[in-house]
Amino acid sequence: MSRSDRVLADAEAVLRRHSERGQSLTARARQRRNAGLLRKIKYAFWAILAVILGSAVAGFVMPLGTTGIMVALGVMIAALLLIGLLPTETRVRTEALAETPLTALPLQTEIWLENQRKALPAPAVTLVDSIGVKLEILAPQLERLGPQDPAALEVRRLLADHLPELVTGYQSIPQPLRREERNGRVPEKQLVEGLAVIDAEIARMSESLASGDLDKLATQNRFLELKYQEAKELGQ
């Protein structure tokens, strides 16, 4: 096996281990919703506590009476209703992806994909899950790239341009026509094929970035081995 083949094999092994640890897009979305629900419960707790403490302080100054108690209850109910209106999950606008910093782009793209999930056919949803896992792997790799690095620009084009355009283009087609052949093309099939290409491209990007790290590590190891050999020769 050549050195380049060995580096690629090592990179694939690293990606495979990460994939095995990765959760599905749905599972991570559920975690975010649960975290949002927990925040709402905390807000509700502090709102109720604030009303109770405010009422207690006001009661020391003057008796609240029936009217005061009703006002306090009204404030408490209004606060709970407002908290109930808060979203439990993050929403990401399509336009916002283009303005997202590179290191945050994989997570924002994952959340955006989860938002589109209900409007996609079953085969596409399977690919969306696969893309979500690969985005989780890609995210820490992007921290070492500069915003204007060729690899960074390639990632941004794929996640902020090509992927949203593919999905929103499909969604713009009326529901009855999505499985109808037109000019030799079926929109639903085009969507699935496009997502498969993007899924493979994200994997390729991760492999390339991992290969670069392994190349760098191999160079550093050779340098250390050379210095170690020089030190041994000096000691003789």
Rank of each mutant, 00 (worst) to 15 (best):
W112F: 01
L15P: 08
I83T: 10
L163P: 01
L138G: 00
Q190T: 09
E12L: 14
A29H: 03
A72V: 04
P101N: 05
P150A: 06
V7Q: 04
V61R: 01
P187A: 10
A139Q: 07
P140Y: 08
G212T: 09
S55W: 07
P123F: 09
L102D: 01
L38G: 00
A104K: 13
A50L: 12
N34F: 10
L158V: 05
T126L: 07
S55T: 13
L195I: 09
I69D: 00
L195Y: 01
G65D: 08
K232D: 09
Q141T: 08
R157Q: 15
T88A: 15
M76A: 15
T109Y: 02
G235Y: 12
A35F: 06
P176E: 04
E188K: 04
L15C: 08
E181V: 11
R156P: 05
G146Q: 14
A96K: 02
A44S: 12
A29I: 05
P164G: 10
I111K: 00
Q141D: 10
V71S: 00
D129A: 08
Q220L: 13
K40L: 13
I41C: 10
R157A: 08
K189W: 07
G68L: 05
V57S: 06
A196L: 08
V167F: 05
L127S: 11
W112K: 05
L214T: 06
P150V: 13
T90S: 06
E180S: 11
R33L: 14
S172H: 03
K227T: 08
M70C: 04
D213K: 13
D161M: 13
S55Q: 07
Q236W: 14
I198G: 02
P140R: 02
L49K: 08
R6H: 04
K216I: 06
Q175V: 15
I137H: 02
A160N: 04
A160Q: 03
P174K: 03
P87K: 10
M70L: 15
S4V: 10
Q31H: 00
L177S: 12
S211C: 12
L85I: 06
E180N: 07
F60K: 03
P140W: 09
T26C: 00
T109K: 01
P147W: 08
S2A: 13
Q190M: 05
L105M: 00
G65W: 11
I41H: 07
T100K: 00
E188N: 11
Q171C: 05
K189C: 00
M62E: 11
E193Q: 11
D199S: 13
G84P: 01
V197K: 04
F223P: 01
S55E: 12
E110N: 05
